[in-house]
Design a protein around this nucleic acid. Structure first.
Lengths: 253, 253
DNA sequence: ACAAAAGTGTTTGATATACACCCATGT
DNA sequence: ACATGGGTGTATATCAAACACTTTTGT
């Protein structure tokens, strides 16, 4: 929650620069330590969590806006982003409206009234991200998919909707390039799929199938140093990968 | 194109009732005579075609807005509608802006500036539709999918995007209930699939597959009167159909 | 030497594809 | 009787699922 002064300041600024009544909310997925993670923000003091989001500059394409917003939160400049749905329930802005109603007359408060939010989901490499809080938050941090706090506004819905979309995507698109480090082992990749799907997969069948996509190249040398048999390293064949992205493939897990 | 008077009138009205800078565009698919059809509007005089669309009332959920808009164009009150993408290129509104720039100062013209458009696609029963032009058009009519006129604005893109989405949907959802009449024959249903996919399918395999979905019931009596062997009539088992809609199924054509 | 992780292969069942024959009806 | 559209069945290839054994490596 902003102070009255900050709210006035922000409102003036926003009115000049942003499209009214439009916001963007992003569900940023990362993967680390065998866990799927989501990037969240927390308000100062209170334990109120929400999704990274922002607004659209008056002359900015919406995809650019989403990219810019996530740049600010993560430091990344190449982000795999996918628009997945608009959230346009008139009640969804109730939170902001209640919050600031007594502080500033609606005419002066840029947050007053109704906001439509465009939902994006992003897949990013956990290690490349340098989480930065925004002006409304004190903390920007990864949270495990299976240890999510309650989210403000309709962000719970937006998050679930993003996850559903991601699971669906998995059926007809390659996914992983944006989530995995450059080199990775087959069990690591499998873990990613298992986490997204929340389901165990057969090691051998997984390998056969994912190799059949033709989007992986195996390195000559296996990874050293593990406590057991050295696994092979793989990396994505970017040409085939992007090809598969546009072409799509059947499938179904 | 509106006259200056109509534009002023509309602008005043719109400012009162609609969300600013947001529009909805709908791609309405119908099926008749073995042809996939799209519902289009034509401006008076000029041969300018565009998609049915409209705006969102200030307190209206966006899905309701899309439903209302299509009610006005088709007379239908139960419509299968699916939001599929937001079109938010800042240049997409250039058309309107150029059109009315000299007629009215931007401050008075509600169409001035940038519009985001939420794309919906709809599947409707051809025979139930009673096409009604809107206030900007003189004609509302079905056009064959393979005989589409050039569309205004970015409606070409919106249309293509809707068609792509529909083709994708076909892979994991039942489609047809909203497009076919209550009773239909297997060859008729096959024609629908072939039209959507723009691809010939094997008669026998199609039948086996679509029956395996378990969403069809065969009537006892075949249709009479045809010039050849009487085909069986089928209808959708609504319970299983809606079930499959939410559950989804694998597939791939 | 053994436990734990990772590599690889085979068998079986299901599903997709391709294809051919029979039946009903109007002319 | 025949042309046309429509119903049905079967053989084959392809793919998914289930499952077991061997290799490597650190302790």
């Amino acid at each position: 929650m902003l102070s009255k002064e900050r709210l006035i300041e922000f409102s003036d600024d926003a009115r000049k620069n942003y499209l009214d009544h439009i916001s963007i909310d992003c569900v940023v997925f990362g993967f680390h330590g065998g866990q799927m993670k989501v990037l969240l923000l927390k308000t100062p003091d209170e334990e109120k969590w929400y999704l990274p989001g922002g607004f659209v500059l008056k002359q900015e394409p919406i995809d650019d806006a989403a990219t810019r917003i996530l740049q600010e939160r993560t430091g990344l400049d190449k982000i795999f982003l996918q628009q997945f749905r608009v959230f346009g329930d008139p009640d969804r802005s109730k939170f902001h409206n209640d919050l600031y109603r007594d502080m500033l007359p609606a005419g002066e408060n840029w947050f007053s009234g109704r906001f439509l939010s465009i939902g994006y989901y992003a897949l990013v490499d956990f290690f490349d991200v340098n989480p930065q809080p925004d002006q409304f938050s004190e903390l920007c941090a990864w949270r495990d998919l299976d240890d999510m706090p309650e989210l403000q506004l309709d962000h719970e819905l937006i998050f679930k909707s993003a996850l559903d979309t991601l699971r669906l995507q998995l059926n007809y698109q390659p996914i992983g390039y944006n989530l995995m480090p450059k080199d990775f082992t087959m069990p690591e990749l499998q873990k990613l799929y298992e986490t997204i799907l929340d389901k165990k997969l057969d090691r051998r069948n997984f390998q056969r199938r994912v190799l059949a996509f033709g989007i992986l190249t195996r390195a000559d040398k296996p990874r050293k140093g593990g406590a057991h048999k050295a696994p092979y390293l793989y990396s994505f064949d970017l040409e085939n990968y992007t090809n598969a992205l546009t072409e799509g493939f059947k499938g179904g897990w």
